[in-house]
C-alpha cells in the first residue's frame, strides 16, 4: 500500500525530509512506526519516545493503534503549540 508520510517541527528536522511516499504493509500506525524505526538511525531517534509524538491519519488526530488500511496520508509531529 502506498502512503504519503509527513513530518513536522523537530520530527521533520531529525528525519531530514518534510514528506515521503512509502510502500508499506503496516496495518496500524504502530506497525508503520516500527517499520520506519528499522530503516535507519534518524527514524529510530525521532521515534525513540512516542509519548512526545502525535499522529494524524488523513488529517484527523489518532492513536498509535489506529488501523491505516485505505489511508492516504499519515502525519507525525510533536504536541501542538497553537494560539
Amino acid at each position: 500500500m502506498k502512503l504519503d508520510v509527513l513530518y513536522f517541527a523537530w520530527l521533520r528536522e531529525r528525519i531530514g525530509v518534510p514528506r515521503e511516499t512509502l510502500d508499506t504493509s503496516a496495518r496500524t500506525v504502530a506497525e508503520l512506526v516500527a517499520e520506519l524505526k528499522a530503516r535507519d538511525d534518524r527514524y529510530a531517534l525521532a521515534f525513540s519516545d512516542l509519548d512526545a509524538v502525535r499522529v494524524a491519519v488523513d488529517q484527523d488526530l489518532c492513536d498509535f493503534d489506529t488501523a491505516i488500511e485505505g489511508a492516504r496520508e499519515i502525519a507525525f509531529f510533536p504536541p501542538m503549540t497553537g494560539g
Binding site: 494524524a56 509531529f77 510533536p78 503549540t81 497553537g82
Partner: peptide, 26 residues
Amino acid sequence: LMDYLKSRAPFWKKESSATGSEWVAA
C-alpha cells in the same frame, strides 16, 4: 476556542534568540 487552539490545532512554534533556536514545548 483558545484552549483548543493551544493543544489541538497543528501549529508548532520555534523561538530564535542570541543563544540559539528551540521548539516551544507544549
